[in-house]
Amino acid sequence: MGERARTLTRDGFRRGAGRGTIGLLVAAVALLSMGALLVGPFPLGPFEAIGRLLDAIAGRDAAGDAATTVLVSIRLPRIAGALLVGAALAAAGACYQTLFRNPLVSPDILGVSAGAGLGAVLGIFLSLPVAAIQFMGFAGGLGAVALVGFVAAAIRHGDRTLILVLAGVVVGALTGAATSLLKVLADPYDQLPAITFWLLGSLAGVKGEDIWPAAPVVLAGLVPLVLLRWRINVLSLGDEEARALGIEAARLRLAVVVCATLVTASVVAIAGVVGWVGLVIPHIARMLVGPGFGRLLPVAALLGAAYLLVVDTLARTISSVEVPLGILTAVVGAPFFLWLLARGRRAWA
C-alpha cells in the first residue's frame, strides 16, 4: 500500500510532466521565433537572412542596408516584444487568477489596462513623443492600481478580495470614462485615430529602445513571483486558511499585486491594450500542468510568449496593412474561451 501510494503520488504530482512541458515549450518558442524572423512582407530568403544576421552579430553591419534593418531593427525587436508582452500578460494573468481564486480573472482586473490606456491617451492628447506616451501609459497603469489599493484599504470591513475587485471595477470604469472624454476632446483628424489604434494594441512600432526599459521591469516583477511561488499557491485557499497555515496573507497579496502590476503595466505601455492573452493562456497552462503555481507560472509565460508571437506574426503578414493585435487576440481567444466554457467544469481545473 505504501509503495503504491508513493508511485501514485509521483505521477499525480505531475513534476516530471511539468518539466517535460517546459522543455518542449522552450523549444517551441525558439523554433517559432526563428520562423517568425524569416517571414514578413520584405522578401528575404532564409539563407540570406541567416547570413545577414551573422554579419550583424559579427559587427559587419552594412549601415542603411534595408534587409539588415528589417532583420535587426524591425523583426528582432518585434519578436522580442511579442515574446515579452505575451509572457508578461500570461504570467500576470496566472498570478491574478490564483490570487483572486477565480479562473475568469484577467490582468486588467485591478484597472491596470484602463489606467495605462488613460495615461497613454493623455500622452497622445498632449502630443507628446512616443517614449513619453509609453511612460505615461506605464505610470497610468501603476497609478490606477495604486488608487484601487487605496480605495480598498479605506474600506475596512468585508471580504478583502471582493473589495479589491470591486474597487478595481469602479476605478476601471472611471478611467474608462476619462479616456472617452479625452477621445471626444481630441483632434479628430490627428489624435483620435492614434488613440483608437493605441487602444486596440499593436506591436507594429516596437523598437529595441522600447524593449530595453520594459524588460528589466518585467523581470523585476517576475522574479519575486517565481521565488514566492509556493506561498502564492497557499494564498489561493483564501485569506483565512492561508493565515492559519502561517502566511501573512495581506502582505503577500500586496507583494503579488505590486509585482503583477509592474509586469502588466510595463508591457501595456509598449504594446497598448492587448486583451485575452492573460485570460485564456493561464487556462491552457492549468490544463497542461495543473494549478500548482510553481509550474503554472513558467508554463503560462512560455505559452503566452508563443501565442502572442504567432498572433503578431499573423498580424503583420496576413494583410497588406497591420491588423490590430487586440482584434486578432479576441478573434482567436473568444471562441476558445467559449469552447472552454462548453467543456464544463473540468476546464476550470
Binding site: R14, R101, L245, I247, G290, P291, G292, A349
Partner: peptide
C-alpha cells in the same frame, strides 16, 4: 478549492 490541486498538494500546504 477553486483550482484542482491534488490531495497531496493540499496536504503539502500544511508544511508552509
Amino acid at each position: 478549492a477553486p483550482f484542482a490541486y491534488s490531495a497531496e498538494e493540499i496536504v503539502l500546504m500544511g508544511r508552509t
